[in-house]
Write a protein that binds this DNA or RNA. Structure first.
Lengths: 201, 201
DNA sequence: GCCTATTTATCACACCCGTGATAAAGTCCG
DNA sequence: CGGACTTTATCACGGGTGTGATAAATAGGC
C-alpha cells in the first residue's frame, strides 16, 4: 500500500494555496474549486486530503496559528530579563514585530489570522483556535512585559495586544494607509511610553 | 403619481434589516432574500429601492459612516480646549468611547464598520467610504489631542486610532474576551499615559 | 506480472445566489 | 369612475458552491 508522494507535503501545498487565496480574496472568496486550481490539482484530490470545506479552513487556520506561535517562540522571555533603556525597547519591539505585517511573509500571516478572528465572530468552528491564538499572544506579551519590570503587566499587555490588532488593520487594509515605517514608529512610541511610564516596579 | 408610504423611511427600514443581518452573520452572510425576509418584505420590493446587491451594501456602509460621524460631531473640539488633568482625560475618553462598542447600539455600528473596512481590502467598492471614515476619525482624534495640548498630535492620534481598532476587535469577537469594563479601563490607561507623557507642549 | 490500496479525476445532484423581465395590486389625481 | 404611476409580488435563467458516489490511473509488495 504505497504512496508515490508525501501526504504531509501535499497537505502543506494545498494549505499554501488556501493561504494565497485568503490573502487575495478574503476568507469567503475561498472555495474548493479555487483552491484546487490555485494548487494545480483537482477538486477530488483536494477533497481526498481534506474531508470538506470546513476541514480545509480549519487546517489553514491551524497553520496560521502555528506559524505565529513559532515566530513568538524564537524570542524566549529569559532573554529579556534585566534589560533596560534602549535595549529593552529594541527587544520588546522585535518581539512584537514578529506578529505585525512588516514584510510580505508576516503580512500574509497577519491577513489570514485577521480574517480568521473576524470570521470566528459568526462561525463557531473557528472559535477555539481563535481564542487559543489570542491567549497565546497575550501570555507572551504579558510575560515579556513582566520580565522587563513593567508594572501591571496584564493591563499593559491588553494595551499592546489591542495596538497590535489596530496596527494590523491599518496596515493591511487600504484605508489610509499606514506604511511599514509609520507602523514601526507608532509601535515604538507606544512601547517607549509604556516602559517609561510603568517601567519602575 | 403617489406613494402611500415614505420612500426614505422604507429605505431606512431596509438598511436597518441589512444592519442586523451583517451583525448576525457577517457581511458575506448578506443576501437580498435574507434582507427581504428580515425586513418583512419581498425581494422585488427591496430591489425596487436598491438597484442591486452592491447598492444595498453601499447604502448600509454609508449609514454606518453617517451614524459614527454624527456621534463624533456631538463632541466639538472647542469644548476640549484648555482642559487639564482629570477633566481632559474624561472628555477625551468620552469622545473616543463614541466609536467603541460600549453598548448595543455602538456595538452594532462598530461591527458593521469593522466588517466594512475588512471587506474593503478585497472589494474596491468599499474603498472610498472606508478611507473617508478612517480619515474623519483620525482628524477628529488629532484635533482633540491638539486642543488638549498634546505634543505631536498626529503621532498620538495614530496610536489612539490603532488602539480603537484593536479594542473593537477584542470586544466584538469572542476570542477572549474583553468586557466593556476592561475595554474602558484599557483605553483610560492609554489615554492617561498619553496625556501625562506628552501633555506639556 | 498480478493484486491491492492509494491517489486522481469526473460525474451528477441539490442548494443558494443575483438579476432581468413581467404581471398584479394598490393609490392618488383629475 | 378612469387613467397614470408607484409599489409589490413572482417567475425563470445562468452561475457558483459543497457534497456524495464512482470510475480511472498509479505505484508498490509478493
Amino acid at each position: 500500500m504505497p504512496a508515490r508522494i508525501d501526504p504531509g507535503q501535499r497537505r502543506r501545498h494545498v494549505v499554501g494555496a488556501a493561504f494565497r487565496l485568503v490573502v487575495a480574496e478574503g476568507i469567503d472568496g475561498l472555495s474548493l474549486r479555487k483552491v484546487a486550481a490555485e494548487a494545480g490539482l483537482n477538486v477530488g484530490s483536494v477533497r481526498h486530503y481534506f474531508d470538506g470545506h470546513e476541514d480545509l479552513l480549519a487546517a489553514a487556520a491551524e497553520e496560521a496559528g502555528d506559524r505565529m506561535g513559532r515566530r513568538l517562540a524564537r524570542h524566549p522571555v529569559d532573554g529579556l530579563r534585566g534589560l533596560t533603556g534602549a535595549a529593552a525597547l529594541d527587544a520588546l519591539q522585535a518581539l512584537v514585530e514578529e506578529v505585525l505585517p512588516v514584510d510580505t511573509e508576516r503580512r500574509e500571516e497577519a491577513i489570514v489570522v485577521l480574517e480568521l478572528i473576524l470570521a470566528a465572530r459568526t462561525r463557531p468552528v473557528f472559535r477555539p483556535i481563535s481564542a487559543r491564538m489570542a491567549a497565546d499572544l497575550g501570555r507572551v506579551v504579558a510575560d515579556a512585559l513582566a520580565a522587563l519590570g513593567v508594572r501591571d503587566p496584564e493591563g499593559a499587555a491588553a494595551q499592546v495586544t489591542a495596538l497590535i490588532g489596530g496596527l494590523t488593520i491599518d496596515t493591511v487594509t487600504p484605508h489610509g494607509s499606514l506604511g511599514v515605517d509609520r507602523l514601526r514608529a507608532t509601535l515604538r512610541a507606544h512601547l517607549s511610553m509604556l516602559l517609561a511610564h510603568h517601567g519602575d516596579r
